[in-house]
Design a protein around this nucleic acid. Structure first.
Lengths: 210, 210
DNA sequence: TCCTTTGTACACCGAGCTGTGTACTTAAAA
DNA sequence: TTTTAAGTACACAGCTCGGTGTACAAAGGA
């Protein structure tokens, strides 16, 4: 009991250090931004010693890159995987607010945020951001093709642009912009998809989903 | 000539210190971002002593706010002032790339950049950003009304969203997105404006795009 | 000419940042 | 039980940043 009093005082949190670090990153980078989140604070929230953090990641840049990579695997899963919806409905579902809270705003897309904060197009984070954006557009195009769109790539790119616009504008205006984007999306989709799929038609189509 | 050798060495640049500072801000904040531009570098570029800078602005925050205020007066002048164009053409002109260089990308809207970098919605810069965005939407709505749009406010907000989307996406993808946004805008405008104004229509004024 | 305003040179402070070195402890696999 | 991988506490180096204090110099109107 010599100098042991301070040794295991904040007792061991076990092995999941890396997970805790990444989870704290997600929380803090979103809430405060990347540049305004210091490694000290991050380690405190993750309940991890600074030394441990730098054993798992070569530096903050590395951590940021990993933080972004985390979003990749589930590119808008829960939207594109919903086989119960028609392609048209799936495309529109991408604009539905995550329904987090009643008055809570949709947070700015972390890839846009990272690109602006990092500011270096060569940084891995910026690379991931491009890859992700292209992947989303491709997913949308794929669904558009499934729905029989005349030019699925164009529709995918257009819808992706709407998503980014809604994301950025929600942040700047501090007011939800996704409903407005969804309205535009509906127009574009109805213009691009054949009428047979336009099941939502007021009265003339009226096929409903088969 | 005792200690005078260093006195007037970098000789006086005259009275326009404030202008030089703001002009250097514009250059550096756009090129490097706000957070990555230190006051030392800024003063060096402006050819102004640090002391002088802090006599004109109470702090960096103040400077950032003034930097953004500079854009206000001419809210997209040169677009809305073009009386030679029909309202429809003016709305579309807002999407024309500033034609800076042949291969140069449209820079990210400084208000979006500042909002993301500053991250504090209470910061004057964020306030200005909101004000500016609302002003642009209002201008667009005004022109839409002039063109006889059924719901000018809605069209203005929609076009503003497209502009923001193109701006953000151009930055993230590192590829020009304004033409794609312009294509969407054309659809929305043609849907909203009465056929009489749809002078550009290829034939019969269909709502086609492409 | 004088005098006020504006700008200058430069050292310096304190805070916060990323990242490291060292000596130690613990959990769990072997 | 022994060994090893993972985690810890903490001080500290080194840097950049925003911002200030001081003493001085020049421009320009009166």
């Amino acid at each position: 009991m010599t100098k042991l009093e301070k040794g295991p005082q904040g007792r061991r949190r076990g092995r999941g250090a890396r997970e805790r670090i990444l989870s704290a990153s997600q929380q803090l980078f979103r809430a405060q931004g990347i540049n305004r989140t210091g490694m000290d604070q991050l380690c405190a929230v993750a309940q991890v010693s600074k030394r441990t953090a730098y054993q798992h990641f070569t530096g903050k840049d590395d951590l940021v890159a990993e933080y972004l990579r985390r979003f990749d695997p589930d590119i808008m899963a829960g939207v594109f995987d919903r086989t119960d919806l028609t392609p048209r409905e799936r495309l529109l579902a991408a604009f539905e607010v995550p329904t987090s809270g009643p008055e809570e705003l949709t947070p700015l897309c972390p890839y846009i945020a990272a690109t602006v904060e990092i500011h270096d197009p060569q940084h891995p984070a910026s690379q991931y951001a491009r890859d992700y954006k292209l992947a989303v557009a491709a997913r949308l195009a794929e669904t558009a093709r499934e729905g029989g769109a005349a030019n699925p790539e164009q529709l995918g790119e257009q819808l992706a642009l709407l998503l980014d616009g809604a994301s950025a504008r929600t942040r700047v205006l501090n007011a939800e912009s996704f409903p407005a984007a969804a309205a535009i999306a509906a127009v574009l989709i109805d213009n691009a998809l054949p009428a047979t799929d336009r099941d939502r038609g007021s009265e003339k189509g009226a096929v409903r989903f088969e």
